[in-house]
Simulated assay, not measured.
Amino acid sequence: MLVLSLAALLPTQAQQVIPLYSGAIPNAKAYAMKEIVNAEPGGRVQGYRKVSQPTLTIFLPKENPTGTGVVIYPGGGYVSESYNGEGVKIAETFVKHGIAAFVVKYRLPSDSIMVDKSIGPLQDAQQAIRLVRERAKEWQLQSDRIGIMGFSAGGHLASTAGTKFNTPVIENPGRVSLRPDFMILIYPVISMSETLAHQGSRTSLLGEKPSQELIERFSNERHVTDQTPPTYLTHTGDDKVVDVDNSIVFYEALRHHRVPAEMHLYPTGNHGFVLKLPTEEWMQPLFGWMKKNGWVQ
């Protein structure tokens, strides 16, 4: 493990890394947790553990901006974040298509640094949406073209943000809309139920023996409404880490509420299958979906 300066961690195509909060971090305890950075010697960051200082890494297209932005939450079972494979590489592909991207390094749930660890990641998810929408004009974005994207446990975080936008867990004095305009969920953890949950993610977020109320609150398939954003899902049938039924039950909930949704299921590839493919290859259907829905021209 290496500890590098912020300048050394800046991805080559990113314009800036900024703190997610301009003031005090909400729900935080005074505890000096040392962040762990997994990085190649002299190279880019691969991932993070023990995150306590959330940031937003900004990728803005230099040519042909579409006015659309995507806020990205990497996965990692709520114990780490796959910052490069499920963040930077995705953002770099988005900007090639004129789409701004914002990779969130969100706090990982910990009783050591949070008063309530179950809402810590969601606070950062909502704050990222608020910040991007507040600064949309500055970043040449249309404020009604701000979507979110999550992988694995980051997909749980994204689907939580996409179903709980009417219940803010952050200060929002300007009443900025926290509702994403669309969601992109890649082999997502959706449910915290006994039969569907990825147990590692559930334990990290909710504890060893979560109450039924907590399980219900964070089982996102149970909180879909007619106002849930249009959603794109992809998963493999042979996923041995996060059961494909997570995507299926969420798609069914969206369908029953007449929320526009598109799902791509592949027979094989297992968890993290997109990491083994060129981003341009697996993201082509996603770009098609975005174009069909008018988020890009």
Rank of each mutant, 00 (worst) to 15 (best):
G269P: 14
E221F: 04
D239A: 01
H271Q: 04
E213I: 13
M263P: 02
A253F: 02
P229W: 03
T225H: 01
V249E: 10
N270L: 13
H256N: 12
D243P: 06
P229T: 15
H256S: 13
T228L: 00
L214D: 04
E216H: 08
V249M: 03
P278V: 15
T236A: 11
D238C: 06
R258M: 07
R255E: 11
M283E: 08
L214K: 13
D243F: 08
Q284R: 14
V224Y: 12
Y266T: 12
V224S: 07
K209L: 13
Y266A: 12
D238R: 12
G237P: 12
H271P: 01
D239R: 07
F250I: 02
L214E: 07
S219G: 02
K292T: 00
K240M: 04
T225V: 10
Q227L: 14
D239Y: 02
P285H: 13
R222G: 00
A261T: 04
V244R: 10
H264M: 11
P229Y: 04
I248W: 00
V244I: 11
P229M: 03
R258N: 12
P260T: 00
K209A: 14
V244T: 13
E281C: 09
L277T: 15
L277K: 15
L275D: 08
I215W: 05
Q227K: 13
V242G: 05
D239L: 01
P260W: 06
K276G: 05
R222W: 00
T279Y: 11
V224E: 09
K209G: 09
V259L: 00
P267T: 10
L277N: 15
L265T: 01
V274Y: 13
W289D: 06
T236W: 10
K292W: 02
E262M: 04
T268M: 15
S211Q: 05
V249C: 02
L254E: 10
D243A: 10
T268H: 15
H257C: 09
E213G: 09
D245K: 13
F218Q: 08
A261M: 03
I215G: 02
T268Q: 15
F287C: 11
D226T: 13
V244Y: 12
D238S: 09
M290S: 08
F273T: 09
E221Y: 06
L275E: 08
F250N: 01
Q212P: 01
Q212Y: 00
Q212K: 04
E262L: 03
D245S: 08
S211G: 08
E281V: 14
G269T: 14
M290A: 07
L254I: 01
G272H: 05
D245V: 03
L233H: 04
D238L: 06
F218T: 06
V242Q: 02
T234S: 07
T268G: 14
K276N: 03
P278R: 14
T231Q: 00
Q284H: 12
R258L: 09
E262R: 05
L214V: 07
P267V: 03
T231L: 02
K240Q: 11
Y266I: 12
R222Q: 05
R217T: 14
S211M: 06
M283H: 04
N270Q: 14
T231K: 00
G272A: 07
L286A: 03
H235F: 12
E281L: 10
Y266F: 15
D238V: 04
K292Y: 02
D226R: 06
T225N: 03
H264L: 13
L214A: 14
P285L: 14
